Amino acid sequence: MPSKPPGLKSLADLKSVQRTLAETREREAAQAAARAAVEKKRLAEQDLFSRAIGATQPLRRQAAVPLAPEPPAPIPFQHQLDEQRVLRESISDEFDVTTLLDVDDAMSFRRPGIGTDVTRKLRAGEWAIQRQVDLHGLRSDAAREALGAFIRTAHRQGVRCVRVVHGKGLGSPGKQPVLKTKAQRWLIQKNEVLAFVQAKPAEGGAGALVVLLAPVGR
């Protein structure tokens, strides 16, 4: 049987390749046409939107204003200075107390209108001591301010009976009880003080005073 000429096989292969290339070009052309149609539609819709809303311009960006942190609460220096000035003015070292003190076996004071039974009960310890302040060893100015603040605070809080420790003055020049005398003067000038007596020996004796304060509101 005679064999097929080899040229026929090559021609068939060439036609197959040409057909494949033609199909590829047609497919690519169809894809490009589809993409072009989509882009044309998008541009048409965008143009339609622009014509519908008219001319536009970008929004201006609002300038940001940095906010300062909230300042801390002011320190009431002036109020503190006023308090200290009132305290200094309210009790003087030059106040004459000689006519106001009861001179007996133990020095005592009672405001006008306060009976002798009050100082007697103070000496007997019938009022319980609720607070005390120790001025012993303080300089005069510091002791005056400490005593004034102590009496004022105790009275505001409703305390009735306190003890003021001033020392016996044995370490002072000439062994004179300077702070004791000043403490008596300061207490007499405080309106919150109704009376005071020298403390009992077990409670400080000549180095302390037991003080009766007025009720709150008086």
Rank of each mutant, 00 (worst) to 15 (best):
G207W: 05
D93Q: 09
A55L: 08
G137C: 03
L194K: 04
E70I: 09
K175G: 11
L87V: 14
R120F: 04
L170F: 08
D104M: 06
D93V: 08
E23V: 13
T119G: 04
V38G: 03
G217K: 08
P177W: 06
I114F: 06
G171N: 14
R19Y: 07
T99E: 09
A183C: 10
Q189K: 07
R88S: 08
R185F: 02
V159E: 04
D117M: 05
G205W: 04
L138T: 00
A199K: 05
E203H: 12
M1W: 09
A12P: 00
A36F: 00
I75C: 07
Q157C: 11
R42Y: 01
A128N: 09
A37K: 11
D104C: 13
A206Q: 12
R185A: 14
E145R: 10
L135R: 01
G54W: 06
E126D: 15
G125M: 04
P5V: 09
L81W: 05
L170R: 14
W186V: 08
R27A: 15
V159S: 03
P177N: 11
P76V: 03
L8W: 13
K180P: 04
R110C: 01
L87M: 15
V103C: 03
E39Y: 05
K180D: 00
E39F: 01
L43G: 07
D104Q: 12
L67F: 05
Q18Y: 01
T24N: 09
R110T: 01
Q132S: 15
A208L: 07
E28R: 12
E70V: 12
P5F: 07
V162L: 07
Q62N: 11
R111E: 04
L43E: 13
K168R: 15
K175H: 15
I53W: 11
R139Y: 11
Q78P: 00
T20R: 13
V118Y: 04
V97C: 13
P58Y: 10
A36H: 10
G217N: 04
P58A: 15
E94F: 09
T98N: 03
L212D: 02
F77R: 13
G205V: 04
Q80S: 06
A199F: 05
R123S: 14
A30P: 00
D141M: 02
Q184D: 03
I129H: 02
W186C: 05
E145Q: 13
D96F: 00
V193L: 01
S50N: 15
S10R: 14
R42W: 02
A128L: 12
R152D: 12
L101M: 10
Q31T: 02
K190P: 01
K41D: 14
S172T: 07
D105K: 12
V165P: 00
Q130L: 08
H155W: 11
G174K: 07
L138Y: 15
V17R: 15
L11T: 10
R61L: 11
D47A: 12
A208C: 09
S50D: 15
E94D: 13
